[in-house]
């Protein structure tokens, strides 16, 4: 109880500090943007208030590789729903991410199953992302402190590089996260995830930037685990629309198990 109120207090004071900082920044004549502001902006650009799209997930591991076509819906940072369209053997399999909970729908047995805490660190659909990664991704702004660690030209492109370090009480798995963002269009180019010892664990790269429903987004994401560089999960968006008519009630177990 005490712990909760203290962390809430901490958050309030941090927000106050951030607000002070922001006003100071606004007062400055330069175009200085705080790291948090930029990341937040990048985040919102990529996600939109809500979105709906289709993507192909290609997973290559040492032992097998497979390709899944999926339909994806999202609302804010807390809700998303993913349904497999092909291959036929797995078509209809769906995952609902709602806050901290992850539910899977298995069409073969027509059941929804909540992923138990012990398996949150397990792989999502065999990819190089864990259920926990996807759940925690939405809270990156709350769980980390940001600073601009580099600002300048890399390979002829002006970029920002951010270093995110977890806040003391944040329940995170990474020791440090680094992200590079192009200055001119705020498109991310890569994100690197490090563990507590500072060892690189995996790299996410973005490419194939294109306009989708009036927004510039990277259409391709690659996730490469550092200890197995020959393995990879790639996500390629084929369609993506933003700010569509969706509300929270859509992200329910009922929708999850609705057969298509």
């Amino acid at each position: 109880m005490d712990r909760v109120s203290r962390s809430r207090l901490l958050r309030v004071s941090l927000t106050t500090a951030a607000a002070l900082l922001l006003s100071a920044a606004a007062a400055a004549p330069l175009t200085a943007q705080t790291a948090r502001e930029i990341i937040d902006k990048v985040d919102r650009m990529m996600r939109g208030e809500s979105s709906h799209g289709r993507m192909t997930v290609d997973i290559t591991t040492e032992h097998w590789s497979r390709s899944l076509d999926m339909e994806v819906w999202s609302l804010g940072a807390e809700h998303s729903l993913v349904r497999v369209e092909s291959p036929a053997r797995e078509a209809g399999t769906a995952t609902l991410f709602a806050g901290d909970e992850v539910w899977n729908y298995l069409p073969r047995v027509d059941r929804t199953i909540k992923v138990p805490p012990a398996l949150m660190m397990g792989s999502w659909m065999g990819s190089h992302l864990t259920n926990d990664d996807i759940v925690k991704e939405s809270r990156i702004v709350d769980d980390y402190d940001f600073e601009i660690s580099f600002e300048g030209e890399v390979d002829g492109v002006e970029v920002y590089e951010f270093t995110m370090t977890p806040r003391p009480e944040a329940p995170v798995v990474w020791g440090r996260v680094e992200e590079q963002v192009r200055k001119h269009d705020l498109m991310p180019t890569w994100v690197r995830y490090y563990d507590d010892e500072g060892t690189l664990v995996r790299t996410m790269t973005f490419s194939d930037y294109k306009m989708m429903s009036g927004r510039l987004v990277p259409a391709v994401f690659h996730i490469i685990p550092a200890d197995k560089p020959e393995e990879k999960t790639s996500m390629t968006y084929h369609e993506l629309e933003f700010d569509i008519d969706l509300d929270e009630s859509f992200f329910s177990l009922r929708t999850l198990r609705a057969r298509r």
Binding site: H63, W64, S65, R66, T93, N104, L106, R108, V109, R111
Partner: peptide, 16 residues
Amino acid sequence: VVVVVGASDGSMGNDL
């Protein structure tokens, strides 16, 4: 009882 298991092809084998 629903049984779900990580399969050798990366899928989630499941059955009742």
